[in-house]
């Protein structure tokens, strides 16, 4: 008995690991089990064999196209959020007066939530909203631009709610890069552009991959904005709408579970690809002293 305990202790197993038990048990019971339950449920349709629900998804374009619609919204939005964050966060490094105010303003949209953003976009960008009024008044357009209840409404809402997260993450990754590295590069003859491209960017790249993943997750689950500012029956019918309708409108839990599984798989494939690319990069310390 004591021998076993010693052997386990050698490998780092002892009573203190019990501290992990509540969290691990919790995640297993409320995340892993429901997920497996959902997978099980999706494989038990009333008709068409175990893969019936998936076959139905693949053959019904109204369901199948939701994946491309979702990716068509979330990939460009996540990419834009990350790419726009880099130069802005890079310019905002260091210490200067007003930095805190500027940062607060940039992360302010986090407080808006998707619903207020949707309401605001409807008011602001709608055919009689200020935006169209201003453009009409300036003579730039002859009739109101349609920016709501279509793709662009949802896209803008994803940018407004997603950018602050991307910006925060990119800023924090940037602040983790030792500033003496750029100084060292300067004394070695690198100009500002070369310093960014050769030193900062390679050290930031893994962080950008992570940021992209998290932004993508955020944009991928677009639900309220797709309903409220989008065109939920047409060009912004994303997969989460289809899943929600299956579960709560048609009470078809099998199809809803299948859609949830497909959504998870598609998302994990994208993340897997990005993280696979990240694994090829240098991902060690970002401090000059190794």
């Amino acid at each position: 008995m004591t021998a076993l305990r010693h052997r386990l202790a050698d490998r780092g197993v002892d009573r203190n690991l019990l501290l992990l038990l509540p969290a691990a048990g919790f995640v297993v019971v409320l995340f892993v089990y429901p997920f497996l339950y959902g997978i099980g449920l999706s494989l038990r349709p009333p008709e068409g064999g175990p893969l019936g629900a998936y076959r139905r998804f693949l053959t019904d374009p109204y369901l199948r196209d939701t994946v491309t619609t979702t990716l068509g919204l979330s990939l460009p939005a996540a990419l834009l959020n990350v790419l726009a964050s880099v130069p802005i966060a890079y310019r905002m490094r260091g210490r200067y007066r007003g930095k805190r105010v500027l940062t607060t303003l940039l992360v302010l949209p986090i407080t808006l939530g998707t619903v207020l953003t949707a309401q605001g976009l409807l008011n602001f960008l709608g055919p009689t909203g200020w935006f169209n009024r201003a453009l009409l008044g300036a003579g730039l357009i002859d009739e109101p631009v349609r920016l709501t209840h279509n793709y662009w409404g949802v896209f803008l809402s994803l940018v407004i709610t997603g950018f602050p997260f991307a910006f925060l993450l990119v800023s924090s990754y940037l602040s983790g890069i030792d500033p003496t590295l750029e100084r060292a590069a300067a004394t070695l003859g690198a100009n500002a552009r070369q310093r960014f491209r050769r030193i900062t960017l390679p050290l930031l790249a893994p962080g950008l991959a992570t940021t992209f993943c998290l932004s993508f997750v955020l944009a991928f689950s677009v639900f309220p904005s797709a309903v409220l500012v989008g065109d939920p029956a047409g060009e912004t019918r994303v997969i989460s709408i289809a899943a929600y309708e299956a579960a709560y409108v048609q009470y078809d839990y099998v199809l809803a579970s299948a859609l949830a599984v497909i959504m998870g798989v598609v998302e994990l494939v994208v993340i897997g690809l990005v993280l696979g690319w990240r694994a090829l990069l240098y991902t060690g310390s970002t401090i000059g002293k190794g």
Partner: peptide, 15 residues
């Protein structure tokens, strides 16, 4: 954290 809430939300709600 990596999964969109809807993906596990629907099976979770069912359970």
């Amino acid at each position: 954290i990596l999964m969109p809430p809807i993906t596990y939300g629907i099976p979770l709600a069912t359970v």
